[in-house]
């Protein structure tokens, strides 16, 4: 009698353990929060406003996630961190993703943050009138050798049959002096983050400026996207789902014009170096690059743009063989 009762009790314990083992993922929200790390592409600035929003306003927490949002930087590579297990989610540019996949990395794209690449070229129409791409001939164009802007500009020149010897490519860094001095006609910058700062200086100097936007000229080179590892997606689809729902929700809220003041306050909280006035100007530009139309679905992956990005990289021998990037696009939360 006693033995049977004991056996029954052991069976019950086993059943409970097995049950919790298999349902731990689903219960995570209700029990202990699931901890994940999210590595951004760049430092805390306007380009990560939605990521910060989701963190600060509890979007992650409401879905049972405890997310550590880490700033990126020039030495940070989210894809490498995914592979090394230091992060579970990250932000990477399309060329990073394609390059990584071409070298055997198992990464998937969950959402595309920028619909229009913010990497554009500023110029002064008064001294450098550019009405058609052919007007680039004879101009001094700043590029960061090895950077995205090099790939984009080369693609643009190739598309419009402008030979490299018909323009002067100028290697640029963080110092804008050559542009201010007029040594360089077109200078690459991030349209949403840097243009309000540089534009302000030009405006003060009484100069007009404009931007060369490659996407308007048919060059779709995808910028920041949210990525995770294939393993993460396969083993923890629920976590990925919850993370993306929370993140996209955060982004939609941050870009909502009604939440403008709150969004600015969040960026200011994490980035005290940039004046509020600049952030106020950066926010609508960021919105227009991420939500090109009023009814646009935030985070949508532009498959054709990804394919074109891969083609550009193939053409420029930045990758040796096709990776069929369209197979890696997994918009789980849309």
């Amino acid at each position: 009698m006693k033995t049977r009762a004991l056996k029954k009790r052991v069976d019950l314990y086993l059943a409970v353990v097995v049950f919790f083992f298999f349902t731990a993922d689903a219960f995570a929200g209700g029990l202990a929060a699931q901890e994940v790390t999210y590595r951004l592409k760049w430092l805390f600035n306007i380009s990560v406003v939605g990521d910060l929003w989701a963190d600060v306003n509890g979007n992650f927490a409401r879905r049972g996630l405890k997310v550590t949002v880490k700033p990126g930087g020039p030495e940070r590579d989210a894809i490498k961190e995914l592979e090394l297990g230091r992060s579970q989610f990250g932000v990477a540019s399309a060329d990073q993703v394609i390059r990584a996949v071409s070298k055997g990395a198992h990464v998937v794209v969950l959402a595309q943050l920028f619909q229009v690449n913010p990497l554009q070229w500023i110029y002064r129409p008064a001294r450098t009138p550019i009405k058609t791409p052919q007007d680039l001939k004879g101009k001094t164009i700043g590029i960061t050798y090895g950077g995205n802007d090099e790939a984009i500009m080369r693609a643009l020149l190739a598309k419009y049959h402008i030979r490299e010897n018909e323009v002067r490519l100028y290697s640029v860094r963080y110092d804008y002096t050559p542009f201010y001095q007029g040594k360089v006609d077109l200078w690459p910058l991030y349209r949403n983050a840097q243009a309000p700062i540089i534009g302000e200086k030009l405006r003060k100097a009484g100069e007009r400026f404009d931007f060369l936007n490659p996407s308007q000229l048919g060059i779709q080179f995808v910028a920041n996207s949210v990525v995770t590892s294939q393993k993460m997606l396969a083993q923890h689809p629920q976590i990925v789902q919850r993370f993306m729902e929370a993140l996209l929700e955060g982004w939609r809220a941050a870009l909502n014009p009604a939440n403008r003041q709150k969004a600015i306050a969040i960026v200011l909280k994490f980035n005290r170096e940039t004046p509020a006035e600049i952030i106020r100007r950066q926010l609508p530009v960021t919105r227009s690059l991420m939500l090109p139309t009023a009814d646009f679905q935030f985070g949508k992956i532009d498959v054709e743009a990804w394919k074109q990005t891969e083609q550009i990289m193939l053409a420029q021998k930045l990758i040796s063989k096709p990776v069929h990037v369209e197979n890696l696009l997994k918009p789980v939360a849309q």
Binding site: P74, E75, D77, K80, Q96, R99, A100, T144, Y145, G146, G147, S171, R173, Y174, D175, L318
Partner: peptide, 19 residues
Amino acid sequence: FIAANAGIGYSIRIALYQS
């Protein structure tokens, strides 16, 4: 690496851009 346009430091920087 920081700012020049020649030399191996510059090449390393470009290589880093390309991971």
